[in-house]
Design a protein around this nucleic acid. Structure first.
Lengths: 231, 231
DNA sequence: AGCTGTGAATATGTTCACAGCG
DNA sequence: CGCTGTGAACATATTCACAGCT
């Protein structure tokens, strides 16, 4: 049974469900109910069932969903049942953080090349990958069959690099540059804009200040172990 | 005239409009129409007008919106007409990238403290800010009047740190840890999950591949003539 | 003529509520 | 019983279309 149309919002939640399921697999749980999954993923039971109904019937009434099967199904829907060759364009701080992010590799996103234009960086190695000059973008994409680019360069450099990547065969771009890329519509672009994320917070906080009705009860009792490390 | 309820989706677009307006201010443009703004921000003219109607009438019929006024209005709605004291919790790679991100400072988000538990990092300076031990979280929040925390620590460390921050008075958290924080509902939490962003792309690309194999090809002709695709 | 502002129409997303299966 | 699967009700978001101002 293959999925009908899965909405963008559902897809994002599936990714969260997957994260939860991975943890449950380690704990060898066999089944979990929609309400348990909802609780762990931060949504509602009805929402979980609606989302999962995209696969057709899958759960067992009275018991819930089989963890292992559900895990595989979601992986498949998200396209994670195959590896993806990814190029990291931009070896700055954001690029560095993304390269070190362990969850990409875990889920089959292989960073097969890193590009930068800074001569001080070119030639260095990050793990097993050598940083190459940006002029080799097309070569990299073709040699390695790169389909997804993570674009972590300043706004001014993003557009031409994106065009070149697409021209060479890239089909998806995760864009960290604070600029709207103009690309053919068949290219899947996903923008991550950190200013937007912070401003969504400041808007809410400022709005609450303006309409100061009920008192903010922040005094929850909780015994917090102070000063514990996170290594 | 103060805004009625502004929806979350509208707020996120306002942040994009703001970015565009900042550029136009530099170019000394006086007015711009909804269709021009839409074009630059990647949405539709009707959407722009609906979003801006949250402020009440503002544009001039026949001319468009006054750039400088609109800029101020959006800043105000987003809560950017005042500075925000921000603490960066976690001085790893993501923390480093965020600290260096210039757009935060430009918009009034002041990183007034950086915390980490790694003794090798504590005491070092990033710019003008010294890295302090995580045990000083409460002190930092109170001394500096921190209202927003950027949480960039591993999943296992996030929950207790978030609780301590909230207990000390923090009202908003930008969370990079791949875990669902459980906090009182009056705390505004915004999750940034990079795996979700990449998987949204792989899902679309994998879905297209499946369609193509079944002959339900919805994608367009892949010939990329540079003149037509993306001027 | 050109463009805003907005109700009405549509599309999309979420919650409810319950029949029906294990 | 408990829990899924799902239509129907509800809520939100986007697009249309056009009256009305400059």
């Amino acid at each position: 049974v293959f999925p009908r149309r899965v909405s963008e919002t559902t897809v994002r939640r599936l990714s969260l469900y997957l994260r939860t399921l991975e943890r449950l697999l380690e704990e060898e749980e066999r089944h979990l109910s929609s309400s348990e999954l909802a609780e762990r993923a931060g949504t509602t039971a009805a929402q979980v069932r609606k989302d999962l109904s995209a696969f057709g019937s899958f759960g067992t009434r009275g018991k819930g969903y089989p963890v292992a099967d559900l895990h595989l199904r979601i992986r498949s829907i998200l396209g994670l049942d195959r590896p993806w060759q990814v190029a990291l364009v931009g070896a700055g701080r954001i690029g560095s953080a993304l390269h070190a992010y362990p969850h990409f590799r875990d889920r089959g996103f292989r960073i097969v090349g890193i590009l930068d234009d800074d001569p001080a960086k070119v030639g260095k190695r990050w793990g097993e990958v050598r940083i190459r000059p940006a002029s080799e973008l097309e070569a990299l994409v073709r040699e390695e069959g790169v389909e997804i680019v993570i674009l972590a360069v300043p706004a001014g450099a993003a557009q031409p690099l994106a065009e070149r990547a697409v021209e060479a065969g890239v089909r998806g771009i995760l864009n960290f540059a604070p600029i709207r890329l103009r690309l053919p519509p068949e290219v899947e672009v996903n923008d991550v804009n950190l200013a937007v994320e912070l401003e969504a917070i400041s808007h809410v906080l400022a709005g609450r200040d303006r309409s100061r009705h009920r008192g903010l009860d922040r005094s929850r009792d909780r015994s917090l172990d102070p000063g514990r490390g996170w290594g």
